[in-house]
Design a protein around this nucleic acid. Structure first.
Lengths: 138, 138
DNA sequence: TTAATATAATCAGTACACTGACTTTATTAT
DNA sequence: ATAATAAAGTCAGTGTACTGATTATATTAA
């Protein structure tokens, strides 16, 4: 018998929604959304790439990246400049303001993942990450 | 050091997106979206409830349920009728057409969850479901 | 009973996330 | 060198998912 509540896609959807709620309250004071934070987190590591490359790293559609960066630019956290070697693409840079957020945001977001998995033992947390990674990289 | 790719919320987001892609191709021929299917699956079990109750079961916001049902009604898969005992609420019914989909959809969707977790052993699949459930019901 | 509160649903507005069409610039093939 | 193709990004349109405001109906308290 099919039980939707034990169906993997449903469980993933709901646990993900739950993390979104926690992230939103953590990010609220910064006027940032969860996907905007994730985008920043990728750019902190890999500055100066183009939208295509960023989308590939993040597993996000090109049109979605477009909008995300537009909003991050409006917040003055990133800046897009022309790539002299390929005039089709933008090169994305994190601004000083965007870099300054790093120290404040990381501890907050660390707490989010602890909060989500607070009912799991440390070993279970590791297992969960391992299994999700196995699916993701399949 | 913070590594976004091993961060639980990110992993949940990406595995969930992956399941959405698989679901979309499974549901394509039925002109149904993943959340629309989930809604139907809940209604197959619990017909005649109102939007509030459905939202609670599904963990979905009241306004989201509103839109989902409007689209399912447009597809003639559900129908909303007045509740004589409380004129504020609708009572939701699955139509004959909506019930008929059950036999066709369930096997398709069963295959989706198998496909997602095809790189996991059976034991790992059980573990994953157990851990996600633990988070969800926390 | 009337007034204050609460509840069910909708509406307006914002942000993802995707598809498909389009523009601009690069690359490749003839 | 030109034509065909591909790639980077944007735009329009649809569907979630949310917040906050509003409407209509119920419930509760004075």
């Amino acid at each position: 018998m099919f039980n939707i509540e034990e169906w993997l896609p449903f469980l993933l959807a709901k646990t993900y929604q739950h993390t979104l709620t926690l992230m939103r309250s953590a990010l609220d004071e910064f006027k940032l959304t969860p996907p905007q934070f994730v985008t920043l987190a990728f750019l902190w590591r890999r500055d100066g790439i183009n939208q295509q490359e960023l989308g590939t790293l993040m597993n996000v559609d090109r049109t979605t990246i477009s909008g995300l960066l537009e909003r991050l630019e409006r917040l003055e956290l990133v800046q897009r400049g022309q790539d002299p070697r390929d005039r089709r693409s933008w090169v994305i840079f994190v601004t000083k303001k965007g870099k300054a957020l790093k120290e404040k945001l990381l501890p907050k977001l660390d707490r989010v993942s602890k909060e989500i998995s607070r009912t799991l033992t440390l070993k279970e947390q590791e297992t969960l990450i391992k299994l999700l990674n196995k699916i993701r990289l399949a």
